[in-house]
Amino acid sequence: MNGWLLAAGITALGVAAVHLAGGHRDVVRPLLSCGLADEPKRVLHAVWHMVSVDLALSGLALLYLSLADGTPGTTLAVWFIAAHFTAYAAVFLVVTLSVGWTRPLLRLPQWILLLPVAVLAAAGTT
Rank of each mutant, 00 (worst) to 15 (best):
A121Q: 02
G9N: 03
V119T: 09
R29C: 00
A16H: 01
S58D: 05
R103G: 13
G35R: 00
L114A: 11
R29L: 15
D69N: 12
P30D: 00
P104V: 08
L115D: 06
L32N: 12
P30A: 04
H24C: 12
A61H: 01
A16N: 09
L76Y: 12
S66E: 06
H19C: 02
A118Y: 01
T96W: 03
R42M: 15
V47T: 11
T75E: 14
A83I: 08
T126V: 09
L57H: 02
E39F: 12
S58Y: 04
V91C: 10
L57D: 00
A123K: 04
L55I: 02
P72D: 10
H49W: 10
V94M: 08
V27T: 13
V119Q: 01
L60R: 01
A90V: 06
F80Y: 14
R107G: 05
L62A: 07
L36R: 08
A21Y: 13
P72V: 05
T96P: 06
H19K: 03
L62C: 07
G70N: 06
Q110M: 11
I10L: 15
A82T: 06
G73I: 00
W48R: 10
L105R: 06
G23R: 02
P30F: 05
A61P: 07
V99T: 11
L6M: 13
A8S: 06
A37I: 04
L55C: 02
A123N: 07
L114W: 11
P72H: 03
Y88T: 07
L67N: 08
A82W: 02
L106S: 14
R25L: 15
L63E: 07
A17L: 14
D69A: 15
R25E: 14
F92P: 01
L114H: 09
T86R: 03
T75A: 14
R42V: 00
L76D: 13
R25S: 12
H19G: 05
T71V: 14
G70C: 00
A122H: 04
T71I: 11
C34H: 13
L97N: 03
T11H: 13
I81M: 05
S66K: 08
V94P: 03
M1V: 12
H45F: 15
V99Q: 14
V94S: 02
F80S: 09
A61W: 09
G3Y: 12
V95N: 02
A90M: 09
S98E: 08
L60C: 05
T102E: 15
V47C: 10
P104D: 01
R25V: 14
N2Y: 04
P109K: 08
V94A: 10
A121T: 05
W48Y: 15
L31M: 06
T125H: 06
T71K: 15
P116F: 01
D26C: 06
P104F: 03
G23S: 05
L120P: 05
W79I: 02
L76I: 12
L76E: 14
A118W: 01
T125D: 02
D26Y: 13
L32C: 00
P109F: 04
L108Q: 12
A61R: 03
G9S: 09
P109W: 08
K41A: 04
S66T: 04
V43S: 04
T126A: 14
A37D: 15
W101R: 12
L31W: 02
A61F: 10
A122W: 10
L120Q: 03
L120C: 05
R29I: 13
G35Y: 07
L65P: 08
A17Y: 04
L113Q: 04
G14D: 08
A83K: 00
L32V: 11
W79T: 00
Q110N: 09
T126W: 14
